[in-house]
Amino acid sequence: MFESLSDRLSGIFDKLTGRGALSENDVNEALREIRRALIEADVALPVVRSFTDKVRNRAVGAEVVKSVTPGQMVVKIVHDQLIEMLGAESQGVDLNAAAPVAIMMVGLQGSGKTTTTAKIARRLTQRDKRKVLMASLDTRRPAAQEQLKVLGEQNDVDSLPIIEGQGPVEIAKRAMTAAKLGGYDVVLLDTAGRIHIDEPLMAEMAEVKAAADPHEIILVADALTGQDAVNLAKNFDERVGITGIALTRMDGDGRGGAALSMQAVTGKPVKLIGTGEKSDALEDFHPKRIADRILGM
């Protein structure tokens, strides 16, 4: 349903072929199409603005090399700029701290926290040979703790026994104690979904952080998220200081512009990509792939 950016730009630039450098006017016309393409890919508007400014600077006066048309030239500039903004190749979760290393998962309701917790646990266990404990701090959503327990059983990862009536902070402390006593390398703390303007729940999340002192705080966010991506990422980051982002549902046909939005407002890297419902559907982040996807290439 989306026309790829190359097609759109070649339309604009067809009349220009044969000229040397791109003029301000040529570039302005192209930037309108770029803006539209980015918005349709769900890049948040403030991020679109700063992005197009950067592209303008690079594109005006750029010499169109003989082998390429102006359209291709601008697409290349846009693509390069996107990759630059999306940051480095995958960094993965960082376990460089004294064991047990706590990793806390946070995010909106239904974004994929519990599923991603199990995916990371599975990867650390099977690929990296770590001893991993998972704990669900979600005492609110019906059967949330049960969900993590079942995922633990399916993937041969231990999960903290459920004790009815304990609150999230208590569970976090119990998990850390159990991890120390049990000689675990990593503790994954799955938290309840929360809306980023729900003050009591945001405060609770900060308390959990204080109790567990996590080395990583991963914001789990849906790749299908629209313009709200900037608000949610900013609020979660301001409240607990996220260390990275896991982008779920990348197996969908969304354009994934939220990745750019969240990275731009927080400066925190996308570390992981969820590509399915099963526990092995976890991949590293590659900026080029997201850039291609945003541009429909």
Partner: peptide, 27 residues
């Protein structure tokens, strides 16, 4: 409600396959 432009595809394809008769917007 947090979903962006992809919701259009969701409506179109679920509509075609499952004969969606109505919507609820959550969150």
């Amino acid at each position: 409600a947090t979903t962006g432009q992809n919701a259009l595809n969701q409506v179109e394809i679920f509509g075609k396959v499952a004969g969606v008769t109505g919507l609820v917007m959550t969150k």
